[in-house]
Write a protein that binds this DNA or RNA. Structure first.
Lengths: 120, 120
DNA sequence: CTACTATATTGCTAAACGGCAAACTAGTGT
DNA sequence: ACACTAGTTTGCCGTTTAGCAATATAGTAG
């Protein structure tokens, strides 16, 4: 049970951190990241995977790139995007586990008969 | 260098993950979390630490509690809040490091004379 | 009950942002 | 040059939300 360090955080630092979270606070952008999770994909492929208008996907890709989460590679007519910041994996992982734990706990609160079900 | 697992994520799961990020995507809420980082604090103390109107801080605390990130304890007139989900520590840590790396890299791109400065 | 303190809630307004549609840019082939 | 394809950008509209101000609740003291 490691003690967590309390960094001193300036106003500007907090703004940057919040900004990073804001970029991730959009289901469509998460879907896009999911679509390029393990390999680079063209915009067309991404659109096919996430299902939205091309203009919107393009805008979201711009936001993700501006934030440094994805990177672009152009080849002829097509543009490939890929994950540029692997910490997105960790962030999603941590959030997923937290949500899972929370929901499990809520289940137990309502229906405690789920015996061997306590947190891993 | 561990390979990252690609979970299959439903629409609903993505919405929940995005929602979690959205809660964190606000400098004032990060400041509040920072104020209760290592110990529980009353609303009054939190207001003193973060510097905002009482109504706003109270509303933000409501959002944080609804999301399960902080927990309430009432004692007489005062209400104490504390971190309820320790993953916020990890999330902030990961984002901080990512931002730090990104900024360092940008520095190097502009002024490459910082010799032994490549990414860890 | 009245007065007071600590916190929460409600209504308002302004700014930010996502989706849509249309126009624009760039690369390819004929 | 023209037509076509892949992506990007721009303008508009509707929703969401943070901050503000005022009101409301709850607990304490007299």
């Amino acid at each position: 049970m490691a003690k967590h360090v309390k960094r001193e955080l300036s106003e500007a630092a907090l703004a940057m951190i919040a900004e990073r979270f804001k970029v991730l606070a959009e289901p469509m952008r998460l879907k896009i990241l999911h679509a390029v999770w393990d390999d680079e994909r063209t915009v067309g492929e991404i659109i096919g995977a996430v299902g939205g208008l091309q203009a919107n996907v393009s805008k979201h890709l711009g936001v993700l790139q501006q934030a440094g989460l994805v990177a672009r590679r152009k080849d002829g007519l097509r543009v490939f995007y890929r994950i540029a910041d692997p910490t997105v994996f960790d962030l999603c992982e941590v959030v997923c586990e937290s949500l899972h734990d929370r929901l499990s706990q809520q289940i137990d609160e309502i229906q405690p008969r789920g015996a061997a079900r306590r947190r891993a």
